[in-house]
Nucleic acid binder design. Sequence first.
DNA 1: ACCTTTAATTCGACTGTTGAATTTAATTTG
DNA 2: CAAATTAAATTCAACAGTCGAATTAAAGGT
Lengths: 413, 413
Amino acid sequence: MLDNHSPPKGCGPLLPLGAAQTKPMRQEIFEHVRAAGRATRTDVIQALGISAGSATALTAEMINAGLLREVESIPRETGRGRPAVALEVVTETHAVIGIKLSEKVHSAVLTDFAGNTRATAVLETLAGPKQLDDLLAEVGKLIHDVLDAAGTQLSAVAAVGIGLSGIVDHQAGTVPWSPLLAQRNCDFATAFREKFGLPIHLDNDANMLTLAELWFGAGRAKSDFAVVTIEQGVGMGLVIDNRLYRGARGMGLELGHTKVQLDGALCRCGRRGCLEAYLADYALAREAATALHLQPHESQSPNALLEALFTQAKSGDEAAQTIFRRAGRYLAVGLANIVQLFDPALIIISGERMQYDYLYADEVMSEMHRLTLNDGRAPCTVETHAWGDLVWARGATALALSAVTDQAIANLA
Amino acid sequence: MLDNHSPPKGCGPLLPLGAAQTKPMRQEIFEHVRAAGRATRTDVIQALGISAGSATALTAEMINAGLLREVESIPRETGRGRPAVALEVVTETHAVIGIKLSEKVHSAVLTDFAGNTRATAVLETLAGPKQLDDLLAEVGKLIHDVLDAAGTQLSAVAAVGIGLSGIVDHQAGTVPWSPLLAQRNCDFATAFREKFGLPIHLDNDANMLTLAELWFGAGRAKSDFAVVTIEQGVGMGLVIDNRLYRGARGMGLELGHTKVQLDGALCRCGRRGCLEAYLADYALAREAATALHLQPHESQSPNALLEALFTQAKSGDEAAQTIFRRAGRYLAVGLANIVQLFDPALIIISGERMQYDYLYADEVMSEMHRLTLNDGRAPCTVETHAWGDLVWARGATALALSAVTDQAIANLA
DNA sequence: ACCTTTAATTCGACTGTTGAATTTAATTTG
DNA sequence: CAAATTAAATTCAACAGTCGAATTAAAGGT
């Protein structure tokens, strides 16, 4: 019957599930109010499916703690019964700063606790890798400027979020590699904390942009979507079940370095056939010289080169058009692969390069749909956002904001 | 100051997080005992970090309910203090059947509540699409056989899990498309329930295999890993945080139809450049005829063709070798893309085709590592398992088993 | 026989939540 | 204008889940 001498080896996963992802109810209420901008207790009760008793107790607690407040003037509507009192986030309690660092320009946004932008700042800078100290000095300048613009001081800031391109370890706060930094494996977070004495949250720029979409943009109403950025490189962010997915080992999702062609075009990373080697600025620029019949020594800035290429293509030049057309086709491949692997309901394409409409042309979309299986289901929607750097910085505020929120709620208990 | 007349639009995700993923503690205890095969209360306390009081109360409750039992004969070890009493799952309470349906042979496994295989059955069948009723008749035969072999009857079975290739909607229990079924959009689950009156859990075969690895195989100790299968098609399963990830819209992860070549080889799906068009059986077979200098009318079974091709390649034939070499290189591309996008700690390659060692050759692995960025981190491990159909069926039992477990625990409260 | 050690149990306390009854604040109606 | 009506918010007893300190249980060591 039962053999006690050979103990069973068992079955099922040996590791426990990731730590409880159930937020305390206080936090869910708070976040619902913030997400709605304003909400009555009844709204909260219905949206979260909680009891009225809990709503009263927990909102009272948070009002008491200065996180929420009742809105004085009720936007009076006709209706019987006791009028509902709207709640809103007390915006003044915590401010956060979000910063996007990039090669030529840094940007910063200061938002209040409700996510409203209070001030912005921009800092032109020299391209090329820098020493960590120099980069932090630029960050200091930015913070100073944005505080100035907001009429506040550093002590009012609860946390800072920073996004930069490259390989960023969000959890550790380190930067294994970035085009902005001369050193490898920078301990960015520690250096920042020493210099500014503020909580810091780092992530790569694609994740920042994805957070911006999740918190402020088209992703707010979607629980699963992907964001693709095409600029200096090709980046990607993914939201699964309303959370930013950072990959199993905390590494970014390197869409730009997925292979779309064996022995294909040469990529910055030294490998061949990466998607980015067909789409990124440098990939177009290096073919542009040929199409524009420039001599090798007639150098221009990459941006000017791309501009010229674009006007050339628009005016009907075959060589210029074929560059964009090929880029578009590979973009379609990249998007199709995302659809096949993640099956998101929405893909958002973003980045300054989106002004070149070859990228969101109908041809690209239809090519993408041709390349994907879709058994009768609604095809994946693709949206294009040609947003500026400030949006990335706002995404960085979202990172800081959510950490500050977690902390503020935890302090209640 | 505060402008009450233009209500804030808010920020942050609008949708709540997915339903609570926190299992009741009873269930965590039960699953830990089952995963360990046998565990004392103290083991449980340490592993789950719970209090001794809870352990006593909850194990007592489950012992009382007949889910767990104390193991009589303690495997006596030297040591002081009160000896710990091991707990184990009461295996007899629930049995489940797992079934893998495929083109030429179906297999079934009957396991007890602890996941031990009690009996197996295999049924040869004709290839080609069938009517749902005919397929269900074959399922009936299989169930009958496996019950016979186990010496039980249908009433002892708590649930059935079935895996089949194609596009399977796990949640709805429907099969939008499968090579096994002549109809599209079969409501398989409903038909099954009507015929057998048993709870049924459907999924595609790649997910079944992935579950098998998670419950019984190399994935048990990993929280994040990918499984790639190469057989008639190329399939993929993904475990994120100890859970099977089914894609944002519940569709499988169609690795086989990711594009690795613009305008590439023709795929079964009618599109060009799909990974599967370079790797799957039919892809190799259609080039095999050329390499083996067969006339078009000299048809063989695909399997025989592949065998012949393989021996030809081994004996040094260039044409045959180049077929395998190309397949291997594209496999490397596919694996590299998985690594870039998901960054798993482990990839398991599985399937009968693994007997052809071109696929797990060192060359393929090193090509894959060449194709991936890895900034100083440990490269992704790749394991190869050439397991038979019964493992897939065992994966199907895992699906049924976890559902039955959820139910049994829920019934306690 | 008595101490030490380890396992398991008991039980009071605490937390987070619910739900019914109640209070509050408005509108509508006789 | 007072009473009825309606809806929002509050109060409060109850309950499930969990913890932790004290206790009991079962062994070995001295």
